[in-house]
Amino acid sequence: MIGLSHYLSVSAIIFSISILGLMINHRNLITLLMCIELMLLAVSTNFIAFARYLHQPAGEVFVFLILAVAAAESAIGLAILVLWFRQHHSVDVEQLNRLKG
């Protein structure tokens, strides 16, 4: 029987994977955007699981908001990324280190 705890575990695992992805990835900025999406999806899974468990629609509504915001976030992220790409012709994360100290 698949219960709440399974859902929570899955979402926690996805969440951890996304955070690990953010940390480990040194090469590609696009991957960072994907990891962020993944993180928000993990949270959404959590909300849906709780909403089902508590028999409440509120959590599901929240998921819609999260999805909308995630779309906006990707749009902004991609826009900034395009600006970067225009100048450097690369999406290498390692190149982002002129600001430090």
Partner: peptide, 12 residues
């Protein structure tokens, strides 16, 4: 250090 992955690592 200026490295993004490092910042994320510290936060996490």
């Amino acid at each position: 250090t200026g490295y993004l992955s490092y910042y994320l690592f510290v936060m996490a």
